[in-house]
Design a protein around this nucleic acid. Structure first.
Lengths: 349, 349
DNA sequence: AGCGTTGCAGCAAGCGCTTTCTATATACGA
DNA sequence: TCGTATATAGAAAGCGCTTGCTGCAACGCT
C-alpha cells in the first residue's frame, strides 16, 4: 500500500490534522513539531494524495490551457508563456500548480469535452487560446460552459480570442482586423492593386477578422475586390503552397499574396519560387504572427508581429489572480507591422 | 452548491450507487433505469466530481506528457501525436482521459517536480519526451521517481529518450548517434574535410549522442578533429547564428557546418549569408530532425528525419496499454538521411 | 411445487484528506 | 493569585464517489 497521511502522523507522533497543517502551511505549528513531521514525510517518502486533497478542500491546483494545435509554434509560444506564469514547478507563483495543455485540434467537440473534463477536475483556472469557431450552436454551448465554470469559481481567461460577453471570462483579444488592414495598406502603399489573399479555415474568428481587415484596406483605397483573389485553406504551409498555385492559376497577374499566417506565407513563397517567380520582384508576400522562423525565410517575411509571449504571460498572471483584469474585462492587443524583404514595389509599376 | 450524485439519484428515484453504475457503465443496469438516470443527469446538468471519483476508485484518468520546450515544434509534434492516441476527447481510445502536457523548460527541478505532481494526481500514465539531462545525481533522482511511479501502477514511457534500466519504463529511443554519423558521412562523401559542429547544450544525452555520431564518422574516415570546430549552444536559431559566427572566426576555412538541429541550422544559414557566404557553394549546412519548416529553407535543408509523429503515436498507444511494449522494453527508432539543397561539394575540391 | 439461478437495485463502508470546533498548556495583565 | 488571552494540537465530521455485499423478484429447471 501507499503511504498515507495517517502513516506520517503515526511516525511523527502527531495527529493527521497536524501533518496536514504542516504540509499546507496555513496554520501555526510549532517549529519542533513541524520538523518532526517533515522528517517523517521524508523518511516515508510520502506523496500527498491529490484527489483526496482536492475532494476535501474542494479546490484543485490544476490549470487548463486549451490550444487548437500544439504542434503549431503560434500556440506553443503562448502556452509556454502562460505556463511560465501559472507557476507549476519553478514558476514565479507561490503554490505549485499543474498547468496542463490540452490540444483540441480545432475540433468543436474536443473543445467542449476538454472543458467538461477540466470542470470535472474542478480546475482552478482555464485559459482558452486562439480563434474561436464561428458556429452559433457551438458558441452558445461554449458560452454556457464558460459561464458555468466561472460560476463554480474557475477563472477563465481568453487569450487571442474574441470576448465572450456575459460569461465572466476575461478576454485578451488580438487586433487581427487592425493588423490585417495595416498589412494590406502597406502593400497598397507600395503600389499593389492586384492582391491575392489566402485565408484560413472558414468559420473561425481569426480567419474572418484578418480577412475583414484586408478588405477594409482595399475598400479604403477604392480597390474593387475580385472574388477570385481569395482562397481558403488550413493554417499550414502545405495549404499555402496549394492555395498559391490556385491563385496563380486564377489570375497570373497578381502582384502580391497576403497569407493568413506565416506558415501559409512560407508555403506561398515555395509555390511562387517553384513557379519561377521572384520574391518580391515579381510577387510580394506577406504573413501574419511573426513566428521565429519568419525572419529566416529568404527573403525575410513581411508580417504582423503579435506579442504572443507577452499576451500569454499576461493571461497567465490574470488567471492566477496576480494581475488585475483589464477594465471591462476586455483588452485588445495590437500587432506591429514588420516590413521586411518579402514585400516590394510591384513589377508593373 | 453544485449538483452531486445524490441529487441526481433523488431526482431519478434511485440510489446513488445506481447512478454511479450508469455513469461508469461497468455494472448491469436495466435500460429503463438507465434512461431515467441519464435524463436526470441531463436535466440537472450534472458533472462528475473528478477528485471524488479518483479518490474512491483509486485511479485517475490523467496522463502526463513531459516536454522540454513546448514552443519547439520538435516537442509539439510529439506531444500532439501522443495526445491523439491517449484518447482525450475524440481520440481513438475508449475512456476519456485528460492528456496533459507539462513544460519543463529543460530544468531538472521542474522535471522532478512535475513528476511528483503527476504522482500526486495518481496519473494513469506518464510519457517523458526528448533527451535526458546527464547529471548523475539528477538522473538517480529521476530513476527513483520513475521506479516509484511504475510500482504505483503508472505506466511510464520514454519517447525519444534513452532507456532507464531497472525502472520499469518502456523506452522508444531515437538513434541520434547513428543519424549523426550518417549525416556527417554524407558530407565527408561529398569531399568535406573541415567540418564545424554546433552542438546543443552540454550535459544532454541528445547533444552527446549526435556529437558522438559526428565524431565517429570523422574517425572512420581518418579525419583528425580540431577542438575549435565544435561549439556548444542552445537548441534554437539564435544560438545557431552566434555559434556560426564564432566558428567562422575560429576557422574561416570550414567548408561545412553541422548543426544540432534544424532551428540551429537555420540560424547558421542566416549567419553564413550575413557573412557573405553562399550555401552550399561556399559552405554546406546540415540540420537534424527534419521539422516541417526545413524543407522551406532556401536552400532546403539537408537533415536527418526523425519520425516524431510516428514515435509519439506509438508511445501514446503503449502508454494506454493498447500496444505491446517492444521486446526488452526498449526499441530504437532510426532516423532517415534527407539529402537536400543545403549540402554540396566543398568549394576547394 | 420447490429450489437454485439470474438480474437489478440499495446499503453502507470506506477512499485520504481538510477543517471546524474543542481542549490543553502557557503567558499575560490586574 | 486568579481570570483571560494566546498558541498549539487533537477529535471528528465530512467532501462526493465507488463497490462489495445483501436483498428481493422473477425466472427456469427437475
Amino acid at each position: 500500500m501507499t503511504v498515507t497521511l495517517a502513516d506520517v502522523a503515526a511516525r511523527a507522533q502527531v495527529s493527521p490534522a497536524t501533518v496536514s497543517r504542516v504540509l499546507n502551511g496555513n496554520y501555526p505549528v510549532a517549529a519542533s513539531t513541524r520538523e518532526r513531521v517533515l522528517k517523517a514525510v521524508d523518511e516515508l517518502d510520502y506523496v500527498l494524495n491529490g484527489p483526496a486533497s482536492a475532494l476535501a478542500a474542494a479546490t484543485s491546483d490544476l490549470v487548463g490551457i486549451l490550444v487548437n494545435d500544439i504542434a503549431d509554434p503560434f500556440f506553443g509560444i503562448m502556452a509556454s508563456a502562460i505556463q511560465s506564469e501559472i507557476g507549476g514547478p519553478g514558476g514565479r507563483a507561490g503554490g505549485e500548480r499543474l498547468a496542463v495543455v490540452c490540444n483540441t485540434g480545432g475540433s468543436p467537440e474536443r473543445e467542449l469535452t476538454y472543458l467538461t473534463l477540466l470542470q470535472r477536475q474542478r480546475a482552478a483556472a482555464v485559459v482558452l487560446t486562439g480563434g474561436a469557431i464561428e458556429d452559433a450552436e457551438h458558441q452558445a454551448a461554449m458560452d454556457a460552459k464558460v459561464r458555468k465554470l466561472s460560476e463554480a469559481g474557475t477563472r477563465v481567461v481568453l487569450c487571442g480570442r474574441p470576448p465572450a460577453p456575459e460569461t465572466g471570462a476575461i478576454a485578451l483579444t488580438f487586433d487581427n482586423r487592425g493588423g490585417g488592414q495595416e498589412l494590406t495598406e502597406h502593400l497598397i502603399g507600395l503600389g499593389h492593386r492586384r492582391l491575392g489573399y489566402i485565408a484560413g479555415p472558414e468559420e473561425r474568428t481569426t480567419t474572418r477578422h484578418r480577412l475583414e481587415g484586408h478588405r477594409a484596406a482595399l475598400a479604403a483605397h477604392g480597390i474593387e475586390e475580385d472574388s477570385r483573389w481569395t482562397v481558403h485553406g488550413r493554417y499550414d504551409r502545405r495549404s499555402g503552397y496549394e492555395a498559391t498555385l490556385e491563385l496563380l492559376r486564377r489570375d497570373p497577374s497578381l502582384t502580391a499574396v497576403v497569407a493568413a499566417n506565416d506558415s501559409v506565407a512560407l508555403g506561398a513563397c515555395a509555390a511562387l519560387r517553384d513557379s519561377g517567380l521572384r520574391i518580391p520582384e515579381d510577387v510580394s508576400v506577406a504573413g501574419f504572427d511573426d513566428l521565429p522562423f519568419s525572419i529566416d525565410a529568404v527573403p525575410s517575411l513581411t508580417t504582423v508581429r503579435l506579442p504572443l509571449a507577452e499576451a500569454g504571460a499576461r493571461a497567465g498572471r490574470i488567471a492566477m489572480g496576480r494581475e488585475e483584469a483589464p477594465p471591462g474585462g476586455i483588452a485588445s492587443v495590437r500587432g506591429e507591422l514588420m516590413v521586411r524583404g518579402s514585400s516590394g514595389v510591384p513589377r508593373s509599376s
